[in-house]
Design a protein around this nucleic acid. Structure first.
Lengths: 210, 210
DNA sequence: ATCTCTACCTACTGGTTGGTAGGTAGGTAT
DNA sequence: ATACCTACCTACCAACCAGTAGGTAGAGAT
């Protein structure tokens, strides 16, 4: 046993429950019971439910932005770089399904609870990606595409598969988050975006696996 | 004033609120106040909160299945038919953003609340679509693609744009559900799926607008 | 005139919510 | 030894929840 600090244990449990049942559907009793303490003891570590939710959300954002910034610095141009970022983002999402579901819930409801401005945090990265894509189009590395549309599609496909995994588990028979399913999903998305972005019709020259 | 029956008015309001705030985040008081009556009067029309949610969900499903069945009977083959169904589905989703958000919430949580088996209802249509796509591949109308992957992507992209519109409103500056934005989105999706499915590289021969 | 039905109401119940008050066991510092 | 801190507890509170009991105003039918 690693004996993690109780604060972290509570944050983990809260993240999981907020992601599964939403803010209104999760009670402090529920969270406290999940980590084996009583509600007042939980409120000893966090001043209120709102504050706990806020910390859960800020931790998720800082976790992600750290990794996203690292990925954005990756070298390469054109498809090579786009696919690398896509794969990295896909892996990031798959490793943190609770984060993805939490994010999706916020996106559905508008995204600014408790003063946390989700759009304000994400927008700079989104705009940077738009600029890069548009430059690559001008440079002739990509077909003439609407950068924003492509990125919204990437967002929807990456988030969608993970956030809706409980539903897709029913449709696709197997465990949607099993490694072989994830690989198949990843390759399909790569193929789709390559066909959308790259003018060169020869897959062997541009695919990741070549 | 059309003087719609109170039952329908309540169902509309409940659909909207359940979609926006989720089941746990919506109280009967909230719904009742929204239609101008008290909670006990609402419980005169529906026996319980669960029953109300159940009716909201069943109405959504029957509304959709009706239109989906009609669309599935559409004539045509290959890309012509695929694009027609895609456009029809996209329009259906855009016209009912509350339904889309409600559906997405269920998908995140697993999809079987109150005995309603969402997967059981959707699966037959999904399998029919898979079969059709695979037959079209064999017939040479489409490239060799993984039918399930393509359909999951269609699901994710169509649902994602509408369900997350409140969030995308912030990212994309304008109103994400405005007519011109919807058209741009639709055309982008058509272009992407055409490039994924159709071997013929000439857009003028296969695009919808040709 | 009375009976019945619908659609609403006020007033209440038992249970749960987020949050507070106050107490205690155990470790640490002086 | 004693003072202090952390991490937990029980007991309580007001507010809110879903749901029930019982009453009323009005419309229609007999």
């Amino acid at each position: 046993m690693a004996q993690r600090p109780m604060r972290e244990v509570i944050l983990d449990e809260a993240t999981e429950l907020f992601a599964r049942f939403g803010y209104g559907g999760t009670s402090l009793n529920h969270i406290a019971a999940g980590v084996g303490i009583k509600r007042p003891s939980l409120l000893h570590h966090f001043p209120s439910k709102d504050a706990l939710y806020g910390e859960v959300f800020e931790r998720m954002l800082s976790d992600w932005l750290e990794r996203v910034e690292a990925t954005m610095k990756s070298p390469g141009r054109g498809w090579e770089r786009f696919s690398a970022v896509l794969v990295s983002g896909f892996e990031l999402f798959c490793e943190n399904p609770s984060y993805v579901r939490l994010m999706r819930r916020e996106a559905i409801e508008g995204g600014e609870r408790l003063g946390i401005d989700l759009v304000g945090v994400v927008a700079p990265f989104f705009e940077a990606a738009v600029n890069w894509l548009e430059e690559e189009v001008v440079a002739g590395h990509f077909r003439k595409v609407d950068a924003r549309q492509v990125l919204v599609t990437a967002y929807a496909t990456l988030l969608g598969y993970v956030s809706d995994a409980p539903f897709l588990n029913g449709l696709l028979v197997d465990d949607a988050l099993a490694p072989e399913m994830l690989l198949a999903r990843r390759d399909h998305l790569l193929d789709m975006f390559r066909r959308t972005l790259v003018a060169d019709p020869d897959p062997s020259l541009t695919s990741l696996g070549a």
